[in-house]
Design a protein around this nucleic acid. Structure first.
Lengths: 338, 338
DNA sequence: TTCTTGAAATAAATCCTTTTATTAACATTA
DNA sequence: TAATGTTAATAAAAGGATTTATTTCAAGAA
């Protein structure tokens, strides 16, 4: 391996000077700088990150931590898009992204141990189970964190504006003339579930519509199967007075519910209008295509990277940040005027 | 930071012994071993990867390299699933996964430079553009590589059995009575495109069906829009003698083509049977749901990890490995007996 | 009792950079 | 001319682990 000693010898100066040159420190004349760079090029020198990190205690590494109980992990379409833009933006600042898991060499370990082991400068947190000891211990350590799925008290968060999105969906249905609007809520253990549900209640109140418990179904997971069960349950409990529209907290659930309704003989959107949330890939391909709320995952990832790096580089954020990324209504074909 | 010196003092032994204990080397008595572990626990010691890597020249880091010109990057559903299983398996062996990009600190760099900079022990290559200088330079360096999208000459590859999958799709159509089978090929610049196309030709030959150039359309990208264009083109060029079935090299293209055909008044599957390839999420949600070929992405990721780690750990693979992962026919509703 | 042998333990060197003092050389000011 | 200041360059220590070569010590053999 080529070291700064080799470069120094080639350039006819000391290793210290080579180091300074590569770090753009002052105290290196233009002539020497040039000689050093030429020597480095010639020898094919690359700085050794490990030695550098050892000396500086800075790794230029950001950890990504996602709960693996969601067995899809990175493969989750929502998160993978956030991760993609996070990773690109982090790269622009010179940071690399590494996955944090619950292992250390050949044994089980905690996330925190893993972070310390790798010496990450900061962590992107993407856990949708809100509170686990594992994650708490990372949050309460001195490691810088930004969360993109859940907003933890006193922690920096970058997350979609669930209230805004819900109101966009609901106002649209209201505009189309709907007054009997049901809600299939995504899991209330998640922040998304909670916020979308409470926006639903807020909306009804603001329009002077009374809450009807028969128009509410709660699901237990962000999965298609839950949509089938929810649709069935909704039909049962509201049989005598069916809603004309459904606001559904998550696209996959909405799509599965839509299929179920159609299988029961309902026409969408003629008999039943449906709005989803998330704008995942499938929603553009269902019959009918799904009207939904788009999350700006690129913006979430980028802002998360910006925030995390600001913290790392000591630009103090004066208060825990709860950044909300605006959502957008995507009108397709699953809603009709009543 | 707690070091082996601190642990040594606490345990009443030398740093060397602590190091040996943590590496499970011989020459540490049971009693001392126990004392060391207790001391380490008490002080909250974690080994410093950077120091270790500096001394051993081994980082326990695997790089993931994917061409970013596919602007979706990790967010691509196919690749993100492979990556997920790769990452989990690598973790079981004690390796962490880091993204490799084309930057180094604040300047542009090559993939190879980045790999050397991070000192990765090996690289997972997921580029579908076959040959670029960038990638060639990594392949011809001494860095261990496994490829999961493209099979490069004399390199280890883990990839789906495109021939098998194609024949499964085509035999199924044949079994349903179809003889006029068209092919919408995915980009022939990709290995997937090439192999699926050549299997199509092989199939026709084996059945004694003459190749009809009107029944072939080539696309330029793995994108839905290409499916629309391809469907339109197919209808134009084969208008006088339409095929009864279409084997389509990629699901998204198949779905978009299907939508286009239906918009033109064709019934699927009554007028036209369609088979895709990949089993991406949307194919279970289209109308009709799409019959397709499933790739075992979990197996690809796991086998890639196994292979790469074997290479790293010096278990020589006697020859460049071209591992083919079996595919599976998923029968849904887009095909009918003629 | 002395000598061997082997296991357990350690000292010191090494891996490559960064950083903190220092030094050297030269220009400026009084 | 002497004193001061500035810039360029360097020597040496530090960072935390591993590794090689030694040493220590106790048990077994002669």
């Amino acid at each position: 391996m080529v070291t700064i000693y080799d470069v120094a010898k080639e350039a006819g100066c000391s290793p210290t000077t080579v180091s300074k040159a590569f770090n753009n420190y002052s105290g290196v004349s233009d002539a020497t700088f040039k000689k050093i760079m030429e020597a480095a090029d010639k020898l094919g020198y690359t700085v050794n990150t490990n030695a550098r990190a050892l000396a500086t205690k800075k790794t230029w590494l950001l950890g990504v931590l996602f709960s693996e109980d969601v067995n899809t992990g990175i493969a989750h379409p929502h998160f993978s898009e956030i991760l993609q833009s996070f990773q690109v933006r982090a790269g622009e600042y010179g940071y690399d992204v590494v996955f944090v898991n619950k292992r250390l060499g050949n044994r089980e370990a905690s996330y925190l141990e893993h972070c310390k082991y790798r010496g990450v400068d900061g962590v992107l947190l993407a856990a949708n189970k809100m509170f686990t000891d594992e994650i708490q211990s990372v949050l309460s350590s001195e490691i810088k964190c930004v969360s993109v799925e859940t907003n933890y008290p006193n922690q920096h968060t970058v997350i979609s504006d669930n209230r805004m999105g819900s109101l966009q969906a609901l106002e649209y249905l209201y505009f189309l003339g709907h007054r009997k609007i049901a809600h299939i809520a995504c899991p209330l253990t998640s922040v998304a579930g909670q916020e979308r549900y409470s926006a639903y209640k807020e909306f009804l109140k603001s329009k002077g519509i009374e809450e009807n418990p028969k128009y509410l179904v709660e699901t237990n997971a962000f999965k298609a199967e839950e949509g089938i069960a929810a649709a069935t349950q909704l039909l049962q409990q509201a049989w005598d007075d069916l809603p004309t529209a459904i606001y559904c907290g998550y696209d996959e659930i909405a799509c599965a519910a839509m299929t179920t309704f159609r299988a029961q003989g309902f026409r969408v959107p003629e008999d039943l209008s449906i709005v989803g949330f998330d704008n995942v890939a499938i929603s553009g391909f269902t019959t009918p295509t799904l009207t939904t709320i788009e999350q700006d995952r690129g913006a979430i990832g980028r802002n998360a990277a910006d925030t995390l790096i600001k913290m790392i580089e000591g630009k103090e954020l004066n208060q825990p940040l709860d950044m909300r990324i605006p959502t957008k209504l995507i009108v397709r074909n699953s809603c009709a005027r009543i």
